[in-house]
Each structure stands twice: as C-alpha cells, then as structure tokens.
Design a protein around this nucleic acid. Structure first.
Length: 177
DNA sequence: CGCTTTTGACCCGCGC
DNA sequence: GCGCGGGTCAAAAGCG
C-alpha cells in the first residue's frame, strides 16, 4: 500500500469534489494558473456535486471508510480505518463505458435503490493495481453517466495516444451550472 | 485457451 | 438479532 504512484488520483476527503481545493486532481491542467481540467477532461465537461446529492440519486457516497487488516488473517485490533480516495464525475453520453485508456474487468453488477439502472463494478486488470471504478446511469436523467474512480494506478496508462480524442468523441458537453 | 462477462451467493456495516 | 443496502466472490457461460 505504500508504493503508490500519487500522480493519478486526487485526495478527496471533503465529500465535495471541488477543483479549487488544495488537493490535486490526476493529470491536472491549468490555464493562467487556474484549474482547467484533469485526465484529459476539460473543466466544462465536469460537473461537481456534493456527496449528499449523490446519495439521494442512489449513487455511492464519494467518501467511504474501508477497513484493512494490518496483520495476517482478520484479527480484530489489527485493523486500520483507511479513507479511500474516491472521486466521481458525470457526463452526458450514450455509452456507459468511457474509454479512459485503462483496461478494466467487470466483477459485479447490482441493482441500485431509487434507480432503474444497475451499477457496474470494474477493476483495473493490471497486475498489482487494484484501482476500481463504478459506472451507473442516473434515473433522473438517463442521458447522464456517473463514473466513480477509487484508488491510484500503480502503472502508466495503457492507451495514452487515443485516450483524449476517444473520450471527447464519446461524450457531449455537460452544461456547467 | 485465455481471457471477460454474467449472476446468484455471500459478506459486512448499520439502523431498528 | 434481523433485514437492508452496498460491495465482492466465484463458478459458469461467453467469446475471439
């Protein structure tokens, strides 16, 4: 857990995804010193929302606490509560799975309360990299797909070249508030 | 064959 | 304790 490349995911603890916070977004870009986007997404393509709103939509909270065992087995007392790093964003898109340049294997799908669409769970297929993401469509507006990333990649992106273009082709601009 | 997806079972934390 | 909701496992099926 220590040898993690910190360049990819932000440190998210406030429950609100806020680009003006001091935490760094993955592959952040700046324009005149102002936050301009991350991961190839331009700022206007990203909508930020509080965790409470996400919960009401039947989606996962942005912050969560996961217990890890520090020793062998599942001894009580050896566990540490670790706040995993998570962030979510939503886009207008016909396709659920945005090509973000990484290879993912689906490992679960669950029905979501208050939502007619299921949520899909994916894990990064790279050995030793346990980054996860979940994808789900909003019931309120079926045109919107919410993607939540969790963890940090321990390796470089596998398809760096067509990454950006692919994503832009796949999604529409979500109007900023 | 070597992957990935599907899908019900299972686990776990939490509120009642 | 029990049920519920979220998250994961893993066996089977699917597919190039």
């Amino acid at each position: 857990m220590d040898s993690i490349n910190p360049s990819f995911f932000l440190n998210q603890s406030s429950g609100i995804i806020n680009p003006s916070s001091s935490s760094s977004f993955p592959n952040m870009t700046y324009n005149n010193g102002n936050f301009d986007g991350f991961m190839g997404f331009k700022r206007e393509n990203i909508q930020y929302f509080p965790a409470a709103e996400v919960k009401n939509e039947g989606f996962v909270p942005v912050e969560s606490e996961i217990k890890f065992s520090a020793g062998i087995g599942k001894k009580k007392g050896n566990e540490k509560k670790i706040r995993k790093q998570r962030f979510a964003f939503q886009t207008r898109s016909q396709v659920d799975i945005l090509d973000d340049g990484y290879r993912w294997r689906k490992y679960g799908q669950k029905a979501v309360k208050n939502n007619k669409f299921p949520r899909s769970y994916y894990r990064c297929t790279n050995q030793g990299c346990n980054v996860k993401k979940q994808v789900q469509r909003l019931s309120r507006d079926e045109g919107i797909v919410v993607t939540t990333y969790e963890g940090m990649h321990t390796h470089p992106v596998e398809k760096p070249n067509d990454n950006f273009e692919q994503i832009l082709n796949q999604m529409h601009i979500y109007p900023p508030f």
